[in-house]
Computed example of a mutant assay.
Amino acid sequence: MFVRTKQNFYFEELYRRQSQRVFRQYLFILKDRDKAEDFTQDIFLKLTSKLYLFHFESRFVTWLFRVTSNHCFEY
């Protein structure tokens, strides 16, 4: 819905639902709490311009974890 409307409410809901999962994934990979917090913020900023790439070919969480992992490994 955020992709079509650009309304902050939808993005806030996405963040509320998924940010802890993303943070835990980063923490597991990086073993650094501060960096995991920074990366979590970064990925959600990145998502604002990347959500259109999600084409419902998999579960959203699966796609989000792939984007999260790629972001981490690029670092």
Rank of each mutant, 00 (worst) to 15 (best):
F39R: 02
F54C: 09
L30W: 04
E37D: 14
Q41G: 03
Y26T: 06
F54N: 08
Y52R: 11
I29Q: 04
Q20Y: 11
Q7R: 13
Q20A: 13
L14F: 07
T48E: 14
V67L: 10
Y52F: 14
R4M: 04
V3K: 04
Q20K: 14
L27T: 02
E12P: 00
L27V: 03
W63Q: 09
K35R: 12
L47Q: 03
W63I: 07
R16D: 13
N8K: 15
K6L: 00
L14V: 06
F56T: 12
F23L: 14
T5H: 09
N70M: 04
R17G: 04
Q41Y: 02
L14A: 06
K31M: 08
L51S: 08
M1F: 12
F2E: 01
E74N: 12
T62S: 15
L64F: 05
F23V: 01
R21F: 08
S19L: 00
Q7I: 03
S49M: 09
D34W: 01
F9M: 02
E13F: 03
E37P: 01
D42L: 11
I29V: 11
Q41C: 01
M1N: 12
S69W: 08
T40K: 06
Y52W: 12
V61S: 14
Y15T: 01
L47H: 01
F9L: 10
W63F: 05
T62I: 06
K50S: 14
F56L: 09
Q20V: 09
E57G: 13
R17K: 15
F23M: 04
T68N: 03
F2H: 01
R4I: 07
V3W: 04
Q18Y: 15
D32Y: 03
Y52D: 13
L47W: 00
Q41V: 02
S49C: 10
R33D: 12
N70L: 10
S19N: 10
L47S: 01
W63Y: 06
K46H: 06
Q7E: 14
K35M: 07
Y10H: 15
R33H: 13
F65Y: 14
Q25E: 02
V3I: 15
L64R: 04
F11C: 03
F73M: 13
Y10M: 01
Y75P: 00
F54Y: 15
R16S: 13
Y15R: 07
R33G: 01
R59V: 10
C72L: 08
F2D: 00
L45W: 07
L14Q: 08
Y52M: 06
F9A: 07
S19P: 02
V3H: 03
T62E: 05
I29H: 01
Y52A: 14
L64S: 05
W63M: 06
F54I: 13
R16T: 10
E74I: 15
F23P: 02
R66L: 11
H71C: 09
K35I: 10
I43M: 13
L64M: 12
N8Y: 07
R21W: 03
L47K: 01
